[in-house]
């Protein structure tokens, strides 16, 4: 009886009065073909190698989808912290980075070649600077990641190099690992909107009822 009442209250007043003690966990999978695609490296092969594996779609044997972003809307307020992204062997690492609005991002060049760091942003101010090997670290101010937006990052010099910076207002957000799994803690029980985004397979929004304790959420994209 008390539990039921609690659910009713939390349904009505989410997220203000609820205790944030739910956990959502699960796997994002895809039915898309998972064989890896290699991209021909057209320049700087001494630093970059002859070819690179495309990061557009990384799927393991059991269909687990890497680098999908899972976000539960309107839960918690993300706070800016210190984050960094590396340009390493002509790849961005990490490939998908979630930041809170106003986060300063340190960009590191670990390669012995010139890169540039170019955000293809529209809601936010874009940034684009050249980063030769001598400029090991450059900080991009929080002003460039102020508005919620999925921002593609490119090194235009090496056209296969890209990454995604997801500016998220909510703190209830996770990026899936190599097997497609994710875990998001501190969700108030009740009904929520859960948003799953992937750079190639697109975006899906679903309703989810979060219980006290663990709630499982599995989704297959690209059906």
């Amino acid at each position: 009886m008390r539990t039921k009442l609690l659910i009713a209250v939390s349904l009505t007043f989410v997220p203000v009065f609820a205790f944030a003690n739910g956990t959502v966990t699960g796997k994002i999978k895809t039915s898309a073909n998972h064989s890896s695609v290699s991209v021909v490296v057209t320049k700087d092969t001494a630093v970059c190698g002859e070819s690179v594996i495309s990061e557009k779609l990384i799927v393991n044997e059991s269909g687990g989808l890497k680098n999908a972003v899972v976000m539960i809307e309107g839960v918690g307020v993300a706070k800016p912290g210190a984050v960094s992204i590396n340009q390493e062997k002509c790849r961005f690492n990490p490939h998908v980075l979630v930041v809170a609005p106003g986060t300063e991002v340190a960009v590191n060049n670990m390669d012995e070649t010139t890169h540039n760091f170019h955000t293809y942003a529209f809601e936010n101010e874009p940034v684009n600077f050249s980063q030769p090997a001598s400029l090991k670290t450059k900080k991009v101010t929080g002003e460039n990641f102020e508005e919620p937006e999925v921002v593609e990052v490119k090194c235009d010099i090496h056209e296969w190099m890209n990454a995604w910076i997801v500016v998220s207002e909510t703190s209830a957000v996770a990026v899936t690992g190599a097997d497609g799994s994710f875990t998001i803690n501190d969700i108030p029980p009740g009904s929520h909107k859960i948003r799953v985004w992937h750079e190639f397979l697109g975006e899906v929004v679903k309703e989810i009822i979060v219980k006290d304790g663990i709630t499982t959420f599995d989704l297959t994209l690209g059906e």
């Binding site: 760091f117 684009n128 600077f129 050249s130 400029l135 450059k138 900080k139 101010t141 235009d156």
Partner: peptide, 15 residues
């Protein structure tokens, strides 16, 4: 893709 080359942030020593 034409990037800025000068840093206007004094912290970036080698720009």
């Amino acid at each position: 893709p034409m990037p800025s080359h000068v840093s206007f942030n004094p912290e970036d020593k080698s720009a």
